[in-house]
Design a protein around this nucleic acid. Structure first.
Length: 750
DNA sequence: GTCCCGCAATTTTTT
DNA sequence: ATTGCGGGAC
């Protein structure tokens, strides 16, 4: 009996195929992580490969951590010398060693999205770009896109020579790169890009890593972008033992540069590639899997595969339409509570998934009202929070004053009377002399025109110098606590009062625990806990790990964050056209974007193990106003025989107007999608409010065909209530999309 | 230099 | 609804 006996034939094939390029198409729930970890074990124990020669790459720290753990369990001796890391941390590791060959200092700082934005703001100001035309975010996203395609600032400028709009971006790109270099800083895209530059430029370095990484494995391969692909291609060129695992149907990150071609064209780039499909699903019921298959089947650009399972049929899928998002939330909360009691499940067996973060609020309010423990996953990055960035900036400045952004961030935080004028003067002086911002601060008395600001700046410099001295003697924790004390940071926060301030204080506490954890960790490994080391670790980590994994709560998160997870019971909320698929996707009419949304739907469905509940609402509060949506087109793609009756529900039918909840949307045997829109099986108090609100009821609604006196026939896309009228968006067959008020438009239903 | 108010913007997210 | 930001008032 060996560890490989528990694998199915396809999985075994993938594990035992160790030489040459290999593409594993692993459907959802087909055990791909098991295959990867067993493959590593097999390489070491059966093929006698030195663990030193293995590289396993993932996208997130979490995935890397999990894989590391499972490999450690499986492989005895030597597992610690396997590189299991994210793309970015692998790159940092390589760059810290060799980046001097590219003219950077090896102590480069890593700029996160926030830092990029701050820098870009400066750049725009410097270039006098009209902020109405050039938005920082847009420029940065253009730059990121360029970097992902390995287009340098100079190349970009040449390409856009004739194009006024993009010329501005090109100028910003050039200046941005210049500033980054001056600050000895790299952004996340650079980490990848500079690594590729290095490998291309220095044959010795390339050879070293090619020789080192004889066996390379890449997880979530469908999410790789062009640069990542290039990096892998270079590293694998010599030994060609490249194993990539992915699922084109789960590619949902095109918007951040993932190139689906990497997986679709793998066999073309690596002509002798072996392809293995893992299609047996161990996670979901037959019903859920059938639904997932029938949705994803509608995509064109994909590798044909059909998941199957030996699991039982399971319950029917439940679909419900509600009058409003509030009713939807009410149902979900109550249904979870009811189901949990009946089935003796834990809260953690339930997940509610949605398309946009904004949807979490309504749900959250309901969960609070019902006192159901819940946790919202995602949202703002822990390390991107203001208070955390403030403290980090202090630590960075103390560690080395080279990061101008960090110094500028804290020079007046907490307020110490150093204003923009003074900062600009120092900045100007620094630029003139070609020195860093902090250096200029230390010689502030040389700065022309600094005037009364001088005392304050000098005292700031003295404070930092004091901390610097302290950093040599004290632990990071003690230093941090002293920063908080000396600057009265906490006191200022406490003065603010309010929930927000409280949570900021909590975050700081949590940050300190994080430091303690790091220090203990270093101690246990007999390494010195250095400030630089801590900052390094923090730079590539998005979130704090939950120290309270044990706690029992319902999980609320976006479909994106749900990838890679599974739950016995899943609710997909907000299954509405305009929300999911998103309004942008529908109006742009880009088939590829719609397919990405469909993949997202596929990901959502396949998270469920036992039961799946789909919900949608006819109207939903979005940005302060009600938006009317029809059911998601994806619901149409699920065969109706998979949808079933679910027992009626309600907190006792006594409470007014709630009786309608129990109706299943598919009670009618002759169900057709269009009928659902006209005759939703819903009834609730909300419909009354709506009828009385003053706006005259209209005989058409979203999805209907209407006729206009001038524009001819079209389809109603959206109806937004405004004041005493509706603003109706109609997609006319000939005239295109128009927005109009119902009272004036005199639309007639066709 | 700081505060406050009005205005725009607002899919999805990791590193 | 909420939040961040720029501009004007103090």
């Amino acid at each position: 009996m060996s560890i490989y006996d528990t694998l199915n034939n396809k999985q075994k094939e993938a594990v035992f195929h160790t030489e040459g390029p290999l593409l594993i198409l692993a459907g959802a729930g087909s055990g791909k992580t098991r295959v990867l970890t067993h493959r590593i074990a097999y390489l070491i124990e059966e093929k006698n490969i030195n663990p030193w020669n293995i590289l396993a790459i993932t996208f997130t720290n979490k995935a890397a951590g999990e894989m590391r753990e499972r490999v450690d369990d499986l492989v005895g001796y030597g597992s610690e010398s396997i590189w299991v890391s994210t793309f970015h941390s692998a790159c940092v590791r390589i760059l810290r060693r060799h980046i001097e060959k590219l003219g950077y200092g090896s102590n480069f700082t890593i700029y996160d999205t926030d830092d990029q934005k701050t820098l870009m703001k400066d750049v725009c100001k410097k270039l006098a770009l009209d902020p109405k035309v050039f938005k920082e975010r847009a420029i940065l996203s253009a730059i990121s896109k360029a970097k992902n395609e390995r287009i340098s600032a100079q190349e970009y400028r040449q390409q856009t020579a004739g194009d006024y709009g993009r010329q501005g971006i090109a100028r910003a790109y050039v200046e941005y790169e210049k500033q980054m270099k001056l600050n000895n800083a790299l952004d996340f895209d650079d980490l990848l890009g500079k690594t590729v530059d290095l490998l291309l430029q220095d044959p010795e370095v390339l050879q070293y890593y090619q020789n080192r990484f004889r066996y390379i494995m890449v997880d979530e391969y469908q999410d790789t972008n062009t640069v990542q692909f290039e990096m892998i291609r270079l590293l694998a060129k010599e030994h060609r033992n490249l194993c990539v695992v992915g699922d084109d149907d789960q590619s949902i990150y095109k918007f951040r540069g993932a190139n689906i071609k990497n997986i679709l064209d793998f066999e073309m780039v690596f002509q002798d590639a072996c392809v293995i499909k893992l299609e047996q699903n161990y996670r979901s019921t037959k019903t859920i899997l059938d639904a997932a298959n029938s949705v994803i089947r509608n995509n064109r650009g994909r590798k044909e595969k059909t998941l199957w399972t030996e699991n039982e049929e399971g319950n029917k899928i439940c679909l419900k339409q509600f009058e409003s998002g509030f009713d939807e939330a009410e149902f979900i909360a109550a249904d979870i509570e009811k189901s949990r009691r009946e089935q003796q499940d834990a809260y953690r067996d339930y997940a509610v998934l949605y398309r946009t973060n904004a949807q979490s609020r309504t749900l959250e309010e309901r969960f609070v009202a019902e006192s159901i423990p819940y946790k919202i996953v995602g949202g703002v990055n822990f390390y991107a929070r203001r208070e955390i960035k403030d403290i980090l900036s202090y630590l960075k400045t103390i560690d080395n004053g080279q990061d101008d952004l960090a110094v500028r961030r804290i020079i007046n935080v907490p307020k110490r009377g150093i204003g923009l004028t003074t900062v600009n003067r120092i900045q100007g002086y620094a630029e003139e002399r070609g020195i860093g911002f902090y250096e200029a601060i230390r010689v502030a008395d040389w700065v022309p025109g600094i005037g009364r600001g001088l005392t304050k700046v000098e005292s700031f410099a003295a404070l930092i110098e004091f901390f610097k001295a302290e950093a040599n003697e004290k632990s990071i924790r003690e230093l941090t606590e002293d920063i908080l004390k000396q600057t009265e940071y906490l006191e200022r926060l406490k003065e603010e009062e309010g929930e927000e301030a409280d949570s900021r204080i909590e975050n700081i506490q949590e940050f300190i625990s994080k430091i303690v954890l790091y220090e203990e960790d270093c101690e246990s490994r007999n390494e010195p806990a250095t400030l630089s080391g801590f900052l390094e670790e923090v730079a590539l980590v998005a979130d704090v790990e939950e120290g309270e994994e044990e706690r029992d709560y319902v999980v609320l998160m976006t479909l994106h964050s749900a990838k890679g997870l599974e739950f016995p019971h899943v609710y997909l909320a907000g299954m509405e056209d305009g929300l999911f698929p998103s309004y942008m996707t529908i109006t742009e009419g880009d088939e590829e974007e719609l397919e990405e949304e469909r993949r997202l739907c596929y990901v959502g469905i396949t998270r469920a193990r036992k039961t799946l509940t789909l919900t949608c609402a006819r109207k939903r509060m979005i940005r302060g106003e009600f938006q009317f949506n029809k059911m998601s087109r994806f619901l149409q793609e699920i065969p109706r025989e998979l949808m079933g009756l679910k027992e009626g529900y309600g907190k006792g039918n006594g409470s007014a107007g709630k009786g309608g909840f129990g109706q299943t949307a598919f009670a009618d045997r002759n169900f057709r999608y269009r009928e659902l829109q006209k005759n939703p099986f819903t009834a609730s108090k909300a419909s009354r409010n709506f009828g009385d609100a003053g706006a005259k009821a209209l005989d058409y609604q979203v999805g209907d065909r209407v006729k206009h006196g001038k524009f001819g026939e079209g389809t109603v896309m959206q109806m937004v209530k405004g004041g005493r009228d509706y603003e109706v968006t109609v997609d006319f067959d000939v005239a295109g999309t128009k927005k109009m008020f119902a009272a004036f438009a005199r639309l007639e239903k066709v």
